[in-house]
Computed example of a mutant assay.
Amino acid sequence: MSNLEIRPRSGVAFTMNKGDLLTVIDPQGEQVADLVAYAQTDIREVISSGRTLDYASRLFLTTGDPLYSNRSKVMLTIVHDDVGRHDFLLTPCSEDTFRIIYGDTHPHQGCFGNLAEALRPFGIEPDNIPVAFNCFMHVAIDGKTGEISVQPPLSRAGEEIRFRAEMDLIIGLTACSALQSNNGSFKPIAYSVTPAEEVMVAEHAQA
C-alpha cells in the first residue's frame, strides 16, 4: 500500500478491519501523531489509556503490547516499533491547551479540534474523544516529584510504528499541532493501512 500524508496540524479518520495493519511513519523526524480508536460496532467502546497502562503495569509501551478499550478488550497490538518511546498519558492538544499553557490569544484548534472534525462523519462527538496514544511523543517523568515534561521526540526521519487491528475499528490520526511536542516545528505524518488479506499472503510467502 502506498503511504498517505497528513498535512501539518491536521487530522484524518478512517476505518480498519480486524487483522489490518496500520503503519504510522514520521517522514522528517521529531513529529508526534495522536491516535484514537473506536469499535465500529459501538462507538461507545473506545481506546483507554487507563485500562491499557493498568494492565501493562508500566508507562512506556512498545512491540508486543496490546492497547485496550474501556471495556477491557484488545483493540490494537503494537507489532513493530522503531522508536520505543511514545506517550499514553497526555490528552490531545486543544484551543484550551494553547490558551492555558502557552497563553495564546488566538489559539489553534489543536489535535482535539482536528480529531473532532475528522470523526464527526462517524457520529463521534467531541465529548467522546479520549486520551490518545501519542505516537513518537517523548514525555519524561521525574521519579521523585512526578513532574511531567515534554521532550523532543526520539523518532528519526522515516521511523515508524505499526499496529494490528484486533477488531473492526474507526481510527482518528493527526499530525500534532503543539510546538513543544514536536521540537519547535510542524511537520507531516505519513500512514498506510495494509488489508488483512495482504498480510496473510505475505506471511504465507515468508513461511
Rank of each mutant, 00 (worst) to 15 (best):
S2G: 12
S2Y: 02
N3Q: 14
L4T: 01
L4S: 08
L4N: 12
R7F: 00
R7M: 06
R7C: 00
P8L: 11
S10C: 00
G11L: 04
G11R: 00
G11S: 09
V12Q: 00
T15F: 01
T15Q: 14
M16F: 01
N17M: 04
K18R: 12
G19F: 06
D20V: 03
D20I: 03
L21W: 09
L22P: 10
Q28A: 12
G29T: 09
V32H: 07
V32A: 07
V32F: 13
D34A: 10
Y38V: 09
R44M: 12
R44N: 09
E45L: 11
V46D: 07
S49H: 05
R51K: 12
T52W: 00
L53C: 03
A56I: 04
A56H: 11
L61F: 09
G64F: 01
P66C: 01
P66D: 01
S72K: 03
K73S: 09
V74F: 08
M75H: 01
L76C: 13
T77P: 04
V79D: 14
H80G: 10
D82G: 08
V83H: 04
R85D: 15
H86W: 09
H86C: 02
T91Q: 15
P92R: 00
S94A: 11
E95D: 14
T97V: 12
F98T: 14
F98L: 13
R99L: 12
R99W: 13
T105H: 15
H108Q: 07
H108W: 13
Q109P: 15
G110K: 03
G110D: 11
F112W: 10
G113E: 09
N114I: 07
N114K: 07
N114P: 14
N114W: 05
A116S: 13
A116F: 06
L119Y: 03
L119S: 11
P121E: 03
G123A: 10
I124L: 08
E125K: 11
P126S: 06
P126N: 04
I129P: 15
I129D: 12
V131A: 15
F133S: 11
C135F: 02
C135A: 09
M137T: 08
V139L: 15
V139M: 15
I141L: 15
D142F: 14
K144Q: 14
E147K: 05
S149G: 11
V150Q: 02
V150H: 06
Q151H: 14
Q151P: 13
S155E: 02
R156F: 06
G158M: 14
E160S: 07
E160A: 05
E160M: 02
I161N: 00
I161H: 02
A165N: 03
E166K: 02
E166R: 07
E166L: 01
D168A: 02
L169Q: 02
L169M: 02
I170N: 01
I170R: 01
L173V: 02
L179R: 10
F186L: 14
K187H: 12
P188T: 07
Y191Q: 06
Y191S: 05
Y191N: 05
P195S: 05
P195E: 13
A205V: 02
A207N: 00
